[in-house]
Computed example of a mutant assay.
Amino acid sequence: MSAPAAAPSGAAALETAFSKAAFPKAVLFDLDGTLLDSAPDMLAVANAMRADRGLPPMRMEPLRAHVSKGSRAMLGAAFPDLDAAQRDAWVPEFLDRYERELGLHGAPFEGVEAMLAALEGAGTLWGIVTNKPEYLARKLMPLLGWQTRCAVLIGGDTLSARKPDPLPLTVAAERIGIVPSQCIYVGDDERDIIAARAAGMPSVVALWGYRLDHDDPLAWQGDAMIESPAQLIGAGAWPATR
Rank of each mutant, 00 (worst) to 15 (best):
S2Y: 05
A6T: 15
A6F: 04
A7V: 14
P8A: 09
E15R: 14
A17G: 10
F18N: 12
P24F: 00
V27S: 12
L28S: 11
D30Y: 08
D30A: 04
L31H: 05
D32E: 13
T34F: 11
A39R: 02
D41T: 01
L43F: 07
A44D: 12
A46I: 15
M49H: 09
R50E: 11
A51P: 00
D52T: 04
M58G: 07
E61D: 15
E61M: 06
E61I: 07
L63W: 10
A65Q: 14
S68K: 04
G70V: 10
M74K: 00
L75R: 05
L82C: 12
D83S: 09
Q86G: 09
R87I: 09
A89Y: 11
W90L: 15
P92T: 12
F94T: 01
D96I: 00
Y98L: 01
R100Y: 02
R100I: 00
E101M: 14
E101L: 00
G103E: 11
G106N: 03
G106W: 02
A107G: 05
A107W: 04
A107F: 07
P108Q: 05
P108A: 04
E110C: 03
A114W: 06
A117Y: 01
A117C: 02
L119R: 07
E120S: 14
G121I: 10
A122P: 06
G123W: 07
G123M: 09
M141L: 15
M141R: 13
P142M: 11
L143P: 01
Q147V: 11
A151Y: 06
L153M: 15
G155I: 12
G155H: 06
D157T: 11
T158I: 07
R162P: 00
R162L: 05
P164H: 11
P166T: 10
L167D: 09
L169Y: 09
E174G: 07
G177R: 09
I178L: 03
I184Y: 04
Y185L: 02
V186T: 13
D189E: 15
R191Q: 04
D192Y: 07
A196W: 08
A196Q: 08
R197M: 02
R197S: 13
R197W: 01
G200C: 11
M201Q: 14
M201T: 01
P202H: 02
S203W: 04
S203A: 15
V204Y: 02
V205F: 02
V205R: 02
L207P: 03
G209C: 09
D213E: 15
H214L: 02
D216P: 02
W220D: 08
W220N: 05
Q221Y: 02
A224W: 01
I226F: 03
S228T: 15
P229N: 05
A230C: 01
Q231V: 09
L232Y: 09
W238E: 10
P239E: 03
A240H: 12
T241A: 03
T241F: 09
R242N: 10
